[in-house]
Design a protein around this nucleic acid. Sequence first.
DNA 1: AAGATTTGACCAGA
DNA 2: TCTGGTCAAATCTT
Length: 310
Amino acid sequence: MSNSNMKMIKKDDADDDRIKAIIEEELVRGREFANQLRQLIVIDKTNNNNNEGDSAYHHNHLLSNVISSFANTLSLLNKYPVIDPVHHQSSSSSNSSSSPNNDLMQMQPPQLHSSLLTYDHHICNTPPDRRGSYRRKRNMETWTKESEKEREEDGHQWRKYGQKAIQNEKYTRNYFRCTHKYEQGCQATKQVQKLQENPPLYRTTYYGHHTCTNPDINNHILIMEEHDPNNTSSSSSSIFLSFDNSLPNPPTNPFFSSTTPPPPQPPPKMMKKEEDKEVVPSSSTQQVLDDSSNNDNNICWDDLMMMMIW
DNA sequence: AAGATTTGACCAGA
DNA sequence: TCTGGTCAAATCTT
């Protein structure tokens, strides 16, 4: 990437440390509020929700704190983008490791780009003004997943809008957009490329994030999911935060949406594209949310960046 | 009738 | 100029 592609505010190392500290502080605050909220929800459940008005007030209060904390962090990150070169990867290479022999449930993490934090303004806020007018998606972050089903349940409603024969591909590629594209301006799209017939195999590539809301579940505030409850090792215990889409701009990972009930199957494992292994906190990443009371809930810097983006 | 899908046209980027 | 992504009218499905 070239520096000319991104607006970077010049800052020295001392500023870096200070900004990082503020970001960490905000994230820790946010997590604490989220934990409190979770405990409240658990308590409400065990008490059969005897005092709904009271708990709703507490939920709202905590939620406001969580939102404000993450909004502050996002604001800082927008001002001072944190770039982790290890994760920079062009989506043009996102299909390189896909093969019919790969684990069907494998999925790549979002590819973080230099333009990540300004991406929405550059691409999503530019509505097509003419038929066929579009911007190619080479620099968008993507997730890919392989499946036996063409339309696997991923928690979102999709509308097919196109089908193309692609060069060097035996089968046609199908194009889907979010059903709420026009009513809510949701920019999420996906492409489904059939790879083989018997057994059927499809590669789904997700582009962009869902910004649509689902009125049915608007009151569900925060879901904290253990990524792999059966695995108790610390390396695979990253927490995925999924925020309700009624937040101002809550992009979500297509697989961890809070707007609709999760699919029956377990969530796919996040894979590092180039290494083809699960994303785990690396030694170079920063442990920003150190929870001494619950080591299973440690979140590494990479996870946080992913949460920020979603 | 409303919503979803199909399909040829259109157009930007490589 | 070719290719891939999107549009939108026509058609199909519920």
